[in-house]
Design a protein around this nucleic acid. Structure first.
Length: 277
DNA sequence: AACCTTCTCAACCGCCCCAGG
DNA sequence: GCCTGGGGCGGTTGAGAAGGT
């Protein structure tokens, strides 16, 4: 018999958090620190389950969290990390300071998948597909007033509660990437299997972006896919049989570090390469 | 104006791993 | 080795708002 769900208790609130609840949680953690999530709601005077409190804190109230407005560099990094790590959002978020796994997961599902598909890349295997996709301009590319409004509201709320570090004179606190688990579904045999290197050149992706922008203005998806073939160099070993879904190679952990270093370097250089602008 | 469809994302759920007894 | 509780992760859901007809 499994363990009873932690939220099984009757009388516990669910759904969106109120400002008052946010304040209670924030104040409690400020005074007592994180941890002991199961007991925290009682002590903090919250009618929530511990998990819910933890989630709220980790994803929204924690200081140093960036909200919305993913930059092109972040997009590129997420795509590249996803090609290496698959849906391991916590690992990916660990490489993106200030971003939470939940946010990256949502962003991936709502924006980046579409973006890759439009570019003619299969979002799961990160391979170019030749199949002609029906021409359909994604609505998500259009400005969504609701979202902007919502984001503004959230920003207001979150910033007032959390991001005191937005004061001009205080640098933004950026959390050290979370400690991560690596051992799930692991074996020596897996580590010895051939791996696939997906080389997604940052420069090429920028080039692609600029060309795609031009192509998309003419609404030509074939042209987009063709651009990808020209500019993204995908090197595969065991090309036909390999799926990232099935296996991601962590024996090449340094590759992830490389990507991360490259990203940091890119940020520090502030994208002086005109192609990246 | 009203209704329908699509989209977003905060939050939930269930499962897993790990540490400690 | 087994059990239990705490914490973490990834997949999924659903409310609400914008866009479309």
């Amino acid at each position: 018999m499994g363990r009873a769900p932690c939220c099984a208790k009757e009388g516990l609130r669910k759904g969106p958090w109120s400002t008052k609840e946010d304040l209670l949680l924030t104040n409690y953690i400020k005074e007592n620190g994180e941890g002991q999530w199961r007991n925290l709601p009682n002590k903090a005077g919250l009618l929530r389950c511990g998990k819910s409190c933890r989630l709220r804190w980790m994803n929204y109230l924690r200081p140093g969290i960036k909200r919305g407005n993913f930059s092109q560099d972040e997009d590129d990094l997420i795509i590249r990390l996803h090609s290496l790590l698959g849906n391991r959002w916590s690992l990916i978020s660990g490489r993106l300071p200030g971003r939470t796994d939940n946010e990256i997961k949502n962003y991936w599902n709502t924006h980046l998948i579409k973006k890759l598909k439009i570019a003619g890349i299969h979002p799961k295997v990160h391979k170019i597909f030749n199949k002609k996709e029906p021409k359909k301009k994604p609505k998500s590319d259009k400005p969504r007033k609701k979202q902007d409004k919502k984001k503004k509201n959230n920003k207001k709320k979150d910033q007032s509660l959390v991001n005191n570090n937005n004061n001009n004179d205080t640098p933004q606190v950026v959390f050290v990437p979370k400690p991560i688990r690596l051992m799930r579904n692991y074996s020596v045999e897996m580590l010895s299997r051939p791996y696939q290197i997906l080389k997604f050149n940052m420069h090429a992706s920028a080039l692609l972006k600029s060309q795609n922008n031009a192509a998309s203005s003419s609404d030509n998806s074939e042209e987009l896919a063709e651009n990808n073939k020209k500019n993204i160099n995908i090197i595969t070993k065991d090309d036909e049989n390999f799926l990232f879904d099935e296996f991601c190679d962590f024996s090449n952990e340094s590759m992830v570090d490389k990507v991360y270093e490259e990203y940091l370097q890119l940020i520090s250089e502030k994208c002086y390469d005109p192609m990246l602008m």
